[in-house]
Design a protein around this nucleic acid. Sequence first.
DNA 1: GTGATCCCTGCAAAGGTTTGCAGTGAAGTA
DNA 2: TACTTCACTGCAAACCTTTGCAGGGATCAC
Lengths: 385, 385
Amino acid sequence: MTVATSDEGPAVPVTIRDVARASGVHISTVSRTFSAPHLVNPETRVRVLACAEDLGYRPNRAARALITGRTHNIGLIIADIANPFFPPLIKAAESQARHRDYHVFVADTNEDPTAEEELVHALAKQVDGVLLCSPRMSNSLIEQLSREVPLVVVNRQVTGLPCVLMDVGQGARAAIEHLIGLGHRGIALLGGPRSSWTNREMRRAAATAARGGGAELTVLGPNAPTETGGFAVAEQVRRSGVSAVLAYNDLMAIGLIAGLDALGVRVPQEVSVVGVDDIALSRLTRPKLTTVATPTGAAGRTAVDMLLQQDIESPRGARSPGAGTARGVRRTTAQVMLQTDLVIRDSTGPGPHARPARPLTASRGPACPAGPGVPTVATGDAVAS
Amino acid sequence: MTVATSDEGPAVPVTIRDVARASGVHISTVSRTFSAPHLVNPETRVRVLACAEDLGYRPNRAARALITGRTHNIGLIIADIANPFFPPLIKAAESQARHRDYHVFVADTNEDPTAEEELVHALAKQVDGVLLCSPRMSNSLIEQLSREVPLVVVNRQVTGLPCVLMDVGQGARAAIEHLIGLGHRGIALLGGPRSSWTNREMRRAAATAARGGGAELTVLGPNAPTETGGFAVAEQVRRSGVSAVLAYNDLMAIGLIAGLDALGVRVPQEVSVVGVDDIALSRLTRPKLTTVATPTGAAGRTAVDMLLQQDIESPRGARSPGAGTARGVRRTTAQVMLQTDLVIRDSTGPGPHARPARPLTASRGPACPAGPGVPTVATGDAVAS
DNA sequence: GTGATCCCTGCAAAGGTTTGCAGTGAAGTA
DNA sequence: TACTTCACTGCAAACCTTTGCAGGGATCAC
């Protein structure tokens, strides 16, 4: 490798001690200048701050964390960062965290349960809590890990742990009812990953709704929850003879539409397709995607709030000098269910059993993009099914 | 909030000391069992390991970092995590890092230069180095920050710093030549963010290529590098009367196509569109997108390699007990340029000046998705322009 | 003038780990 | 036997910060 070099080496790390020396005070005063300013004389404070500024001092968060037990970081473990479902969630979580003076570290697991576990361990000591988004590992492992670091689970229900859920069951039901209303009787459900909670919920709700509406539901899958996964299953969809499909997510729906297109099957004229998530893209494809909008932003914000709340109540590594041993720390484990919304666009149309000129019953309109999703709160058991 | 509580509080953190007590050795032996196993007696080792396993001990990385100066983390600062251009880069970086026993923390800046700076500071002490991807802040600030923590810059050229660049200039040139070859003479360039290095490179190269081919280049922008940004500029494109467009990235191209579609302008019949990046999606839109493929995976891997290499040479917080003061650590600042590839699909077609039945000269085919991109290495000055 | 109060600051321990140095005992060598 | 070598382990300092405690002045009331 051809290489150029510069001789300005990495700056010597300037510590609290350097600032103390420069400003002629004890290190504890410097420390207080940053972590408890009201305890130090205004004059001293400005002097110390000036010196700190001058030397380019920045508190070492690792050292601080070592003694306070709080890193002011939160970890965000994501099943697949390439899935556009997640970025809005990440952004919302980051923004919420920033307001509370926290930083967010995102880690991607590639849908790999092993990576999930490893990452929780790796993050455990470097963050004050972890948001587990659409985890693929087992519930029992999650519970076990939650003993190591405060956890909030998103898109998965784990008894005894704080969870943020989106009511995809209700969304799937609405989607199926919409399709039945359009005159579809043969409907396929494109399943996602087997270990996905969302997948199970959708499947159950869709089955119930189909039965109730006199339609037949064919489950295809599990599939990879990606465009490719959707594309690959197009042939199977065509052969199955259904006239409508509810896909595990928008990505699969978009892939499926492309796949059907490649086979010469037209959407929605021959097959109607419904997605889930309402990613930004679903407004830009042709046809525009009918989809179940999930309140991802709200989920991110809520999850951060729940984590920080639980975290504040029971600071980690609490040295609690005075408190007795058997303090019996109680963790709050609220479970929040956020509503979803069916957004009807152009990828669904009349099916074989449609009555002619039948007016649509479902309201047609855009999802409120910033809609917070009305939270429904319940104890774990009340939500459990 | 209705709340359920569980009484299993957060596990008491088990430290090296607990393991030492349990296995009847000194803490230093426990430490060595993990960080220098060959120095401890096999029997002792297994005993210690058993106790550690038993108690669920995990080394505290923060404490370890405090003394070794190495966290085994690397930070990845991303302009916009919602841009599908980045996930492949992130994934590649993560995978490469994992092989070297490093973890990656991703942070999103929302294209906000202030957030970028703040995040570098926040990460500085918690990581061994930072990958700055498509930074929006000024070069001088980047240089300044690089004195605080080892930096590798991606998609931006900063003299004196290690950079991973993609040859978008060459890509833009190929795109313009492709369009000219198709018979287009009025071409628009949809600019991206003003502070983007890529943007400047593309603009310069496109202008040169257009001039050389006898076409007129209209620059529209700057615009937000998103679907929305592309969608919004559709009207302007139509009014400008050009027959072809090169967009800053695929997202904008896709948004533009949707916007043109909404205006009743057909692609590629009336307007040809070329994107940049070759995101997965560009294969699934209709029409499939002609685009300049950028080797994002290779960029991520290369960046990690460069960071780790530089980092190994000059460990941070080097206490170097014996070494003299004026050690003059030299940092390697190789700059790597990765090649790009024009992938011709369906969003470009003959223009007003096309000769009838003219055979295509450019090769038509898929981009090699896993293609490493042939790296060209040069000193900073050689690449600078 | 004495004592109490208050604000500010310094002292020193603590947090979990690594690591140079020294010590121990056993094995090997002369 | 005496000495060296060697493998292993313990000791204690160090990393950078926070924080309970106590000390030192100054101010104030009596």
